[in-house]
Amino acid sequence: MHWLYLAIAVAFETTVAIAAGKAEGFKNRKWTAITLLSGAAATFFLSKALLTFEVGVGYALWTSVAGVGITVIGALFFAQRLNLHKLIGIALVIGGVVGLQLSGSA
């Protein structure tokens, strides 16, 4: 169940990043509300996942998977460019996540 909680937390954290970009410095009320509500939901589900994961490992997984997701979504839907350096960075993050999982801490 902790993996499901972590996946939900990642989805909400990805929503936070997209909504914050559209909130125009919190001037747009709709996107500001989405940002804040998604952030609260992301934190809630992360806290549920951290009942099983070690805090450092769970937080690292949450932020890194969300970061990769946000980067990919930006490239697919918001015309943000992926260059070789970004792709190498994504590969390194994924390698780090795999390494954390293989450490047997969750």
Results as ranks from 00 to 15, higher is better:
Q101S: 08
A66G: 04
S47A: 12
N28E: 09
F45P: 05
K48H: 09
L51Q: 14
G67R: 03
G39P: 13
G39C: 01
H85W: 15
L61V: 05
S105E: 08
V57E: 11
L50G: 01
T52S: 08
T43F: 10
N83T: 04
V93G: 04
A79M: 04
N83A: 03
A23V: 00
A40F: 14
L76G: 05
L84E: 15
R29C: 01
R81H: 05
G99N: 07
A75C: 12
A33V: 09
L82P: 11
T63G: 14
A79V: 01
T35K: 06
H2L: 10
N83W: 04
G104T: 03
R29G: 11
G67T: 10
V16A: 09
W62N: 06
V16F: 10
V10Y: 03
V68H: 02
A91K: 02
L61D: 00
L92E: 09
T14Q: 06
I88T: 05
T35A: 00
L102F: 05
M1K: 12
A79I: 02
S103A: 15
F77H: 01
V68T: 01
E13H: 05
K22L: 06
H85V: 12
A60S: 10
L46V: 09
A106Y: 13
I70V: 12
L6Q: 01
